[in-house]
Design a protein around this nucleic acid. Structure first.
Lengths: 219, 219
DNA sequence: TATATACTGTGACCAGCAGTCATAAAATGA
DNA sequence: TCATTTTATGACTGCTGGTCACAGTATATA
């Protein structure tokens, strides 16, 4: 029953054309000030047409972010899980950095759109798309960590406790990289930075003592 | 020669009144959409007067951020450094979280303003204020880490390598907290979160092997 | 083919905000 | 008291996000 009429296909193509136009404009340093009219012009359509596809400028941002999440999840799914857990984590971190760095524009938008106050202003269906991806990433990483716990290479702690630090570090590191802080001022190479952060994250998770600083308040 | 005329004092007072008004408005969830007119009204002055003190809305943001940095640095200076290095780090992390959490509005603005693309659009003098604080924080933390290296509790690595992870984690963690991600969805208490992140950061730094994954590429 | 109907694209238009500036008001001082 | 400088102001400008009435086009019907 999903018979994609030619019209429907064209309509869908338009949509991705708009997104492509948007992404190409978001690549610049002032991506936050890109106007809807600029996007329309880049996509060679009228401004009003943009609003036939997206109810607001923020929805364009959101769609870009979601598309990026889809890419990242896809890459995760293709990871080789038949390795020691710490190697899997390192590889996961590595491919994430690779994607974030090679897809500058989308990744930056994604990071910006993952703020709750941004998501809260979206339509319920878009909100759901975000939380779905969030859920999927959580499930995926949880699986890895749980195996680590069973095998004894990861301390036995609530999964959320193990994950929160890694999430924080990864997002924070991307922000640092994009802000130009790291590369320019510290004279550190990107590749080097990625390795260091990877080591640090793995060390942080593995180094969490199972019950030292937080005796058993696992209420 | 710094003879603060009554006029000059009043002018300075005005400025801090504007900042106070701004901060009180920035406390809401939509702080990014607070208008200059709202700030002016809150400060009980005309909109034009605001521009006698700040050349743009972003400059207000910047000043709020800088004031916050001053507070944080001040707190750092009062830390008790006569403890084991890891305890100092933990305390530093703890007081940072405390300040960031108790001064919600300013901290959020600060984090937002530390992006390079934001700073790049400021006046040179403001840019300098930012980099000065950056420098001061770096010097302070470097001192602690260097002592740790000498004492053997911190692996001997370039200071920048040790610091970058902590910076990333801290900023990322604050973003996570503010985004509501942590508290609401994972059922984790704030205090708990702070402890976990602190443990993770210290473990991450200490757990970096001196020369394992990055043999001696310290070119 | 001719006409009716639905759908799509459009840019003129509106509302709201950042930032300016001519002018009013107040302070200073002679 | 009046002249001069300094300060405060909000009406105004320009720009941008978002709307909408209408034009143009495809599809359906007779």
């Amino acid at each position: 029953m999903p018979k994609p009429t030619r019209k429907e296909r064209e309509f869908a193509r338009r949509e991705s054309e708009i997104l492509d136009a948007a992404i190409s404009l978001f690549s610049g340093p002032d991506w936050e000030q890109v106007t809807v009219e600029q996007i329309a012009k880049q996509a060679e359509i009228g401004k009003g047409t943009v609003y036939k596809h997206f109810s607001s400028k923020e929805e364009i941002h959101a769609k870009v972010a979601i598309e990026f999440n889809a890419q990242l999840l896809d890459i995760f799914k293709n990871l080789d899980l038949n390795q020691p857990v710490d190697a899997v984590l390192r590889e996961m971190i590595h491919v994430s950095f690779d994607l974030f760095l090679s897809n500058h524009a989308q990744a930056r938008v994604e990071l910006c759109c993952s703020r709750l106050d941004f998501i809260a202003n979206l339509s319920p269906s878009l909100q759901k798309e975000f939380s779905d991806y969030e859920e999927k990433f959580d499930v995926f990483i949880s699986g890895i960590l749980e195996r680590g716990i069973e095998e004894g290479s990861i301390p036995r702690r609530p999964i959320a406790h193990l994950m929160v630090g890694m999430k924080a570090t990864f997002n924070g590191a991307m922000t640092l990289i994009w802000s130009g802080d790291v590369i320019e001022s510290e004279g550190m190479e990107l590749e080097e930075m990625v390795t260091i952060i990877g080591d640090y994250m793995v060390a942080g998770v593995i180094g969490l003592s199972p019950s030292l600083s937080n005796p058993s308040k696992t209420k």
